[in-house]
Amino acid sequence: MTNYLMSVHGPAEMEEFGNYGSKEAMEEAFAATGAFNDQLKADGYWVFAGGLQSGSTATVVDGQGEKPVVTDGPYLETKELIGGFWVIDVPDLDVALKLAAAASKACRGKVEVRPFDGLA
């Protein structure tokens, strides 16, 4: 079994109704994602998942020096950021890619699949 991060990338700043356009579209996406999550758990692939607040709520901390330096904002100033992610535990990349396709459809976003080097 291999652990993969499936991360969803989207606009750094959220509009009203997330980035879904309308209240109905947002609710549909939430429902589809919820159903996808339930299936992940039922299939035994679920490790963890979560959605993130917008990039403007992020804080960067550099603790490598003598005193930690705290800076407002995401680490990289880009137009697109990770909006949410799953951690899955599946037999191989083919299974991960199938799940990513379903995840992408459910959450209405592109999904990056990346293997973990290890999980603590």
């Binding site: 037999p91 191989d92 990349l93 083919d94 699949v113």
Partner: peptide, 14 residues
């Protein structure tokens, strides 16, 4: 190796 691409003939549907 790292992403665990399988050594397998895909299933009939794929």
């Amino acid at each position: 190796a790292a992403a665990n691409v399988p050594y397998r003939v895909p299933e009939a549907e794929d």
